[in-house]
Write a protein that binds this DNA or RNA. Structure first.
Length: 572
RNA sequence: GCGCCCUUAGCUCAGUUGGAUAGAGCAUCGGUUUUCUAAACCGAGGGUCGUAGGUUCGAAUCCUUCAGGGCGCGCCA
């Protein structure tokens, strides 16, 4: 039930049928044609720019054309009254009561699916993919929630979504991680002092992992090399458990976990690169020394390189290290080879701001691997800046005292975190204030939207009305008042918000919209304080109009919060 | 030096493929509760949409220039 789409289509069809009468030719180029809600100072419900676009294409006067089209619409489309031409050639339309009632009935019938479209693509969304060397920290949080809500949004529209986590369980960092666990075990078992060398992980959680391993197993831990295989397996198991647990507390459950190590072991990397060798994208060669700081380990050696410059990257990228082993990028390329082979319609990666430089190479890799058939789109989440009582504070990972998701959850509930992390466009930095999120006021948007829902539930409670009451209307007792009309207009916009958010992969539009809807509701509610006749409950009952308004708001808020996976208490 | 992102009210930010008089919250000032949840609402002031050009019926939005801020520029992961 997207009235913008359906009415626009109807109007376009009408114009197409009357092409000759209107004396216009370029009828098939409707690019840029829109139907939307006009600015508040116009009384109309809908507005279209179609005449300006058509006039330009046909080189005629847009106002004159508008007058002809106005006539056409008036004669042929019964849902509209007061068709008007305004400004440089806008066509402004108002819905008849009958049309409005029919639209409202449809929305109420659609209920939980109101706002959704029926697309049917399969998506793979890779997000979080935090290194399995410790618990999740706050930096991961934004991307995690972004990915999760984007998945919900696309599912809401009928798509199939696989939420995927890539486990970087291979390479030097894992060795250092396992070594840290080993040393902590030695510390506990043999009272050897843990010396914090460079690249080791000093954090407290390593001790916890060490204890768990010691408690469950009677291993000797005499030598690092001999214990390695066992220790690696156990340490990774516990750290992934920690991460999954953090994610679960945030309301996030991935469908699929792919291990980097297993890709190496099953020779996926070799296969991917063998395939690319047949193209112009991978070949043996030399790379230029890096441009930034000097790097001691850099050697001019012949090796396999991926020619990412062909995809707009700054420089070509090494697939092999000095010793001939695969680079991180080679493994990741293989991982994407695997994704491509799983035949999704679309691949999406959610990255942190510090990985922007990686995008061209990996998007290029997918093009090369799929012969341009599969599209990978990377979405970047900018940094989160933390504030406490108005002052910023930083988290450093090196010293081991970073703020974990778990710490965060001890102070702030999941609902607030989820809503706040999406209350800004992913392209801008986000201020996350611990205190604001805890507030129970308009300053805290989560609360404000939840409160709107709770107020409506409170009315139903007072009147002993069940939430799921079937409601159909044949006519309205009296016209909707101005406040109700405004709310209905906002409700009609919901499908549009969902559509844009999905198309642009911008879930932040949803919390922002919900906040705006809540504002209209709270405003209307308070009108009852000034004037008795605006009270929702009149003589112990509720008018049909008010019932409709509250039902519409509930439908949209519930659908929206469902996508966000944020709870809606009935009482606050 | 190069790439990506950002620059809109005092502050933090919204703003569908270009649409009509650019919007919120905070802060400031002033008002509203014997009441369905005042944990709320209403009003006022506040703007050269970073700069300079261009494209056109029409630009915060598209193109170019410059300036400022953030992130990144490994044969680490």
């Amino acid at each position: 039930m997207n009235i913008f789409d359906s009415y626009l289509e109807e109007i376009l069809n009408l114009i197409q049928e009357n092409q000759k009468k209107l004396n216009i030719k370029e009828i098939n180029k409707f690019k840029g044609v829109s139907l939307e809600i006009p600015p508040a100072n116009f009384a109309s419900d809908l507005s279209s720019n179609i005449c300006m676009i058509l006039a330009k294409l046909n080189n005629v006067d847009s106002k004159k054309l508008a007058l002809k089209i106005k006539e056409l619409i008036t004669e042929n489309i019964r849902d509209f009254k007061n068709v008007e031409v305004a400004g440089p050639g806008f066509i402004n339309l108002s819905l008849t009561n009958k049309a409005l009632i029919s639209i409202i009935n449809k929305i109420i019938i659609e209920g939980k699916s109101f706002g959704s479209t029926t697309s049917n693509f399969s998506y793979n969304i890779e997000f979080v993919s935090a290194n399995p060397t410790g618990p999740m920290h706050i930096g991961h949080c934004r991307g995690a929630i972004f990915g999760d809500v984007l998945s919900n949004l696309l599912k809401f529209n009928g798509n199939k979504v696989t939420k995927e986590y890539y486990i970087n369980d291979y390479g030097n960092q894992i060795k250092n991680f396992v070594k840290s666990v080993y040393l902590r075990i030695r510390e506990i078992k043999f009272k050897e002092k843990f010396i914090n060398e460079k690249d080791l992980y000093p954090g407290e959680y390593i001790k916890d992992i060490a204890k768990k391993i010691l408690n469950k197993n009677k291993f000797k831990f005499d030598s690092f090399d001999e214990s390695y295989e066992f220790l690696e397996k156990e340490s990774l198991k516990y750290s992934m458990e920690m991460i999954k647990n953090d994610l679960k507390k945030l309301g996030i459950i991935h469908d699929s976990f792919v291990s980097e190590k297993s890709l190496v072991e099953t020779r996926t990397v070799t296969n991917a690169i063998t395939q690319l060798k047949k193209t112009k994208f991978v070949e043996e060669g030399y790379l230029e020394p890096p441009k930034g700081e000097e790097n001691k380990n850099w050697k001019k050696t012949k090796r396999l390189i991926f020619k990412s410059v062909l995809f707009g990257d700054d420089t070509n990228r090494a697939l092999q290290k000095n010793d001939g082993s695969w680079t991180y990028f080679a493994n990741d390329l293989a991982y994407h080879f695997d994704k491509v082979s799983r035949k999704y319609d679309k691949l999406i990666n959610i990255l942190g701001a510090d990985h922007t430089g990686y995008i061209k190479r990996i998007e290029g890799a997918v093009k090369a691997l799929s012969e341009e058939k599969t599209v990978l789109e990377c979405k970047v989440c900018q940094l989160v800046k933390l504030y406490k009582k108005g002052t910023p504070f930083k988290m450093s990972k090196r010293s081991g005292d970073f703020i974990s998701v778990n710490d965060l959850l001890n102070e702030v509930n999941k609902d607030s975190i989820r809503f706040m992390m999406l209350n800004r466009s992913n392209d801008v930095e986000l201020d996350f204030d611990f205190d604001k999120v805890l507030e129970k006021s308009k300053e805290n948007p989560v609360f404000y939207v939840q409160y709107c829902h709770a107020r409506i539930q409170s009315i139903y409670r007072t009147l002993n009305i069940k939430n799921k009451k079937e409601l159909q209307i044949n006519n309205i007792e009296k016209d909707f008042n101005q406040y109700e009309k405004e709310i209905i207009k906002k409700i009609l916009e919901w499908p549009k918000i969902v559509k844009i958010s999905s198309r642009k992969y911008e879930p932040h539009r949803i919390p922002i919209y919900l906040y705006q809807l809540a504002t209209l509701f709270h405003s209307y509610w308070s009108k009852g304080n000034e004037d008795e006749k605006f009270k929702f409950i009149q003589k112990g009952t509720i008018s049909k109009n008010t019932m409709i308004i509250t039902q519409l708001i509930l439908i949209v808020i519930q659908n929206g919060m469902n996508i966000l996976n944020v709870s809606l208490p009935n009482k606050m």
